[in-house]
């Protein structure tokens, strides 16, 4: 299977923050959730992929082309959506299409108008007058109208209400059903990914903690719960991000460690949030 995006050993450091050897790959035709708390390095990674930031080391490929050296080719296939529109605020919706057209060999004006219709974007409205959800949909409409094969969405749903978020998920589900489009979706609202994402890459403090199929993430860990007396040393040694209270405790453990725990401790499959929260908490405690 060909990869839509391949990031290998990406490094980038600022004072006080470093992206260290970040590697992951997204197979063509699938959705990958890119998760981690604010400041974990999601946007830095995305900006390196888009060459908005110069990387210190590593290699990035988009649909088999070097993302930096073959940038001109790559940008034709790439659609980008940020949480705020990057168009001048005075532009009208229809003008965005006209302005983008010369840059894309496969720009499809009729398709652009179909998308803005479908998303309910008034052609005469100015960018600055758009709500967050509409601004996001405008970027999405633009990305879809030049037949982008890889969509990179950076926190697209962060400022949206639940109904607008649901709309976005519908659009993504539609896109993926064709099979020709791949999506990298960064977010800290993991509920959006719980069902729709095929793959998850989880990053914390600039390092990849997990990357792979979402089901493997759920299989790799278990959430355990028990009473206050049950948090023995044996449990504590294996617990990740232990939270104990007077009435009990909860923690994440590796699935392989589950079998060795004392009887009476209940366990269940973790949500993406469970994994994210507990691993981040464990990291902070160190």
């Amino acid at each position: 299977m060909a990869d839509a995006l391949r990031v290998m050993g990406l490094c980038k450091s600022y004072p006080g923050f470093a992206l260290t050897e970040v590697s992951f790959s997204l197979p063509e035709g699938y959705i990958m959730g890119f998760v981690g708390r604010n400041g974990a390095g999601k946007t830095t990674t995305i900006k390196c992929v888009l060459d908005m930031l110069a990387r210190d080391g590593g290699h990035i490929e988009v649909l088999g082309h070097d993302a930096i050296d073959d940038q001109v080719t790559v940008k034709q296939d790439l659609g980008v959506v940020f949480d705020q529109p990057f168009y001048p605020p005075e532009w009208k919706v229809a003008q965005v299409g006209q302005a983008l057209r010369p840059f894309y060999a496969r720009w499809d004006e009729a398709l652009f108008h179909r998308h803005i219709d479908r998303f309910g974007l008034p052609a005469g409205k100015r960018v600055r007058e758009l709500s967050r959800g509409m601004g996001m949909k405008l970027m999405l409409a633009a990305a879809l109208s030049h037949h982008a094969r890889l969509l990179i969405l950076d926190e697209p749903t962060s400022g949206l209400d639940p109904v607008a978020r649901d709309d976005v998920l519908d659009v993504l589900a539609d896109l993926i059903s064709g099979g020709g489009v791949s999506v990298l979706f960064s977010t800290h609202i993991t509920a959006d990914l719980e069902r729709i994402a095929d793959y998850i890459t989880f990053i914390d403090a600039g390092r990849v903690v997990f990357t792979g199929a979402k089901d493997d993430l759920a299989d790799a860990y278990r959430m355990i719960h028990g009473g206050p007396g049950q948090a023995t040393d044996q449990v504590r040694r294996r617990a990740i991000g232990l939270r104990s209270t007077e009435v009990g405790f909860s923690a994440l453990v590796r699935s392989a460690d589950r079998a060795g725990l004392p009887p009476g401790i209940t366990d269940q499959a973790p949500s993406i949030d469970d994994v994210l929260i507990h691993i981040a908490r464990q990291g902070d405690a160190r």
Binding site: G29, Y30, I31, L169, D170, A173, D174, I176, S177, G178, G179, R195, I196, A197, D198, Y199, A213, K214, D215
Partner: peptide, 17 residues
């Protein structure tokens, strides 16, 4: 597989499996 993933709003890997 992809149509069903879209309709149920689950991942393609899930319906493939």
């Amino acid at each position: 597989i992809r149509q069903l993933a879209r309709d149920l709003r689950v991942s393609v890997i899930t319906t493939t499996r």
